[in-house]
Design a protein around this nucleic acid. Sequence first.
DNA 1: ACTATTCTAGAATTTTGTTCTAGTAATAAT
DNA 2: ATTATTACTAGAACAAAATTCTAGAATAGT
Lengths: 227, 227
Amino acid sequence: MGNSDSDICHRNMTSPTMFHKRQAGKSQTRKSQTSALKSRVMEVSLAHFSDVGIEQTNVGDILQDADCSVGSLYHHFGSKEGIAEALFVEGVDHFNAGLLAALLPRRTASTGIKAMVTFCCEWVTDQPQLAAFLLSREIKLSELARLELREKDRAFGQSTYDWFAPHVKSGELQALPTGLYMPLICGPTLECSRMWLSGRSARSPGEVAAILAEASWQSVRKSVRKS
Amino acid sequence: MGNSDSDICHRNMTSPTMFHKRQAGKSQTRKSQTSALKSRVMEVSLAHFSDVGIEQTNVGDILQDADCSVGSLYHHFGSKEGIAEALFVEGVDHFNAGLLAALLPRRTASTGIKAMVTFCCEWVTDQPQLAAFLLSREIKLSELARLELREKDRAFGQSTYDWFAPHVKSGELQALPTGLYMPLICGPTLECSRMWLSGRSARSPGEVAAILAEASWQSVRKSVRKS
DNA sequence: ACTATTCTAGAATTTTGTTCTAGTAATAAT
DNA sequence: ATTATTACTAGAACAAAATTCTAGAATAGT
């Protein structure tokens, strides 16, 4: 153990019982400092990750840009992948919540499905960085995070299913395996998003939202014709 | 040139003399040995990449599993990313060729579109490793490879367009921005594939191919009804 | 006051991708 | 045939980056 002599003089203010510095204006509480640090790290990391990818991002840059020490970073996130994981879970949460908020208020099958597609398009166009990061499946999730996500997925699926069920019953929507609705409704949009985000396509999802919405609706509505 | 005997090398004390280490029974030609080595490296790398991702794969493991030396690997591929790049280009070629081969012989719009979707499903289900690797957009391509791919993309797009055009003209297919056909036709399938490959869904694309084919067809056919 | 816990800090270590020098086989040039 | 050149193999050495370690400081709990 270290010899803890001499240079403590500094902080040795006689008798601090309830003496913590709570200078509300200037220095914040430790708690808020910490949470600010974590946000800073995540924000900075997202910028780097979505720009050059997780692998190419080096921890040193994050440390510098977020004004964070090695110790703090590894204390809070465990590893570089840990940061990515936190970002991923947060991002999925945000997206799912928005999607549900867009869907649930709609009363007809047609408007609901189209609202989902439209929301998807707008979300991607509005926050390309986060979208690019989420859509690039570059993240190796830990077992823990994987379970957490699976549970969120399940809950989300249940919520959408509750909305779909009546419309399936009424004959407006096709009856499909539950796992197929999302791919059919959002798959084309996400594919367009990937193209746009990676620079392979010039048209943003926002610009083609109406076409995508109509097409996706056609793909899941109950067809009266035989093909 | 240089007389090798006089100047003693300080850094390299051991010399790589033995070469007969890797001759299996008969000594093959150097050429075939080399190409076998390259294939081995690519095969082994694909297994690792699709399993844990490029970042998590370390070169040492590839070297060991492929029984390859550092020098050879860097001579042939330049870097770890170089291996990924080679795999990626080869994979895209293979997929595109198959897709075209499935599409071109079909005479009607409906059978053509459905053939594309079906091929997609089968291809992913048949070679999950390669599919997982291609669908994870984890690869940072070099400028050279990027151009090469863009050209292949263009050629591929042209070929499909040539097939689509008559059916659009005849009123069977919707007229859409060219960039939208692929996302609409293959987007849902690819989304399903991602889900299945990442373990988030239990149903393989192969199992739901028929449903996907029908739905995708509905999304791009010319609709007679208004919705 | 004392102890435990959480957090910050950065030096030290380890891991890992890549470079470097050197040697070998095959081929082209003289 | 001899020599020069090129393609390839080999692994030690290197550099850079991720992570661990040790220690000290702030806060919470008793």
